[in-house]
């Protein structure tokens, strides 16, 4: 028989999502991992959460902005600023 507390933890989505986040950086115990696996086996909403949380990580890591450049006007004023700072000294 499952104890009340264990049952509570296993069916607690707040706790499960917390463990999902912690696990991504490899920091949960074997017992916590077991709790999480049991929870996920029976909770499709948290499984969706897990997928989407990983998607967020992927989007963050996949940052690409190859054509990202400062605009010319900003560069011109920046150059002027540097020159005037140099002349101050």
């Amino acid at each position: 028989m499952m104890t009340g507390t264990l049952k509570k933890i296993m069916y607690n989505c707040r706790q499960a999502t917390f463990l999902i986040e912690k696990k991504m950086f490899g920091k949960i115990s074997a017992a916590e991992n077991l709790q999480l696996q049991i929870h996920l086996a029976g909770c499709s909403v948290c499984k969706t959460y897990q997928h989407q949380s990983m998607l967020v990580n992927r989007l963050i890591a996949g940052f690409e902005a190859n054509n990202l450049k400062l605009d010319d006007q900003f560069k011109i004023s920046l150059k002027e600023r540097i020159e005037s700072e140099m002349n101050k000294n």
Partner: peptide, 13 residues
């Protein structure tokens, strides 16, 4: 009970 509130439950994208 720590369950998702219906309004905030993740849905497939």
């Amino acid at each position: 009970n720590g369950h998702w509130n219906a309004l905030h439950a993740p849905k497939a994208f």
